[in-house]
Amino acid sequence: MPGTILASDMHLDPERPESMALFGRFLDEIAAGADALYLLGDLFEVWLGDDAIHPAYEPVLERLAALSRAGTAVCIQHGNRDFLMGSGLAERLGATLLPEETVADLGGTPTLLLHGDSLCTDDTAYQAFRAQVRDPAWQAGFLALSPEERMEQARQARAASREAQAAVDSEITDVNADAVAEAFRRHDVRQMIHGHTHRPADHALSVDGRPARRLVLPQWTDRGGYIRCDEDTCELLAYPWESRLPTSDGEYC
């Protein structure tokens, strides 16, 4: 079916082959034939560099490359887990590696696309970590390590992250309302789509007295979800269709 498909937070992991199989089916059943596929970060649980690809990722990478060859525009953004995806991966997939914030015309509406972690400004410890790992000098030093050394550092960082998040109030890890409003103003748009928070919803907002819409993509565990945009609108959908996603008022769709 033509249209644009958006998803994020698949967190593909060789230790969870069922999640990779689920996403593979999604690419075959939902993304195939789409005009464009936008993956807004955290496609992978961890990405150690384009020169250190785990063999378990190969089927998904081949499916993405096949989509591109078939005419679907594949566009990928960095997340907080896979910020080291580079031009080598993009070239292999025939994909476009998007900047941290990009505006696309979706459903007839200019729409700001971003992973969403930059909006969580109340989590100051995470923002400091984010600034460090997005620094080109830090990334160059990390990529100069052997794949084994990178993996060990990644294991340590993940363990520290789990420990830190367990002690943080869940509201701190959600988006900050002022940061959201500023992003709307910065790009002069009235629609935004992001992931990261794992709180899927369709929020109706008011920014400077004007209506605005913030769509939040879900994470993928045993099931997932996505947004489909046609020429008229964008809709948050579950995958598989039997599953349900929460709306902003706590009900399910």
Rank of each mutant, 00 (worst) to 15 (best):
L6F: 09
A31S: 08
A32I: 01
C120V: 06
G141E: 10
S161M: 13
D9S: 06
L112A: 09
R210I: 06
E152A: 10
R213C: 09
G108I: 06
D222R: 15
W138A: 03
T121G: 00
A157C: 13
L48M: 03
I5S: 07
F44G: 04
L143Q: 06
L145K: 13
A140S: 10
Q191D: 00
P211C: 00
D50H: 05
D9H: 06
H54Y: 05
S68L: 04
H54D: 15
M10L: 14
L114N: 06
L43F: 02
H11P: 07
Y57M: 09
T109S: 13
R190W: 04
T197Y: 05
D123C: 07
G225Q: 11
V46T: 15
D135S: 00
L98P: 02
A181P: 04
P147T: 05
T221Q: 10
G94R: 04
Q156Y: 08
H115L: 06
L84I: 00
E149T: 12
A157Y: 13
P246L: 05
P99D: 03
F83P: 02
R130P: 03
L106W: 11
M1P: 09
A154R: 12
L48F: 03
P14M: 11
P55T: 10
I76E: 01
L12Q: 10
A128Y: 04
H194S: 09
F142E: 04
A65N: 03
L39Q: 05
E231N: 09
G141L: 03
L113R: 03
C120E: 06
P246G: 08
E235I: 11
D122T: 08
Q77L: 11
F184H: 11
D178F: 04
A177C: 08
L237Q: 12
I76N: 01
A177V: 13
L67V: 10
P17I: 14
E163W: 12
L27V: 07
R134M: 02
D202H: 15
D117G: 01
P99S: 01
G195D: 02
E251N: 15
T221V: 11
I53A: 02
A157K: 14
M10G: 01
S206V: 13
A183G: 02
V175E: 00
A164T: 12
A201M: 11
G71I: 08
E100P: 00
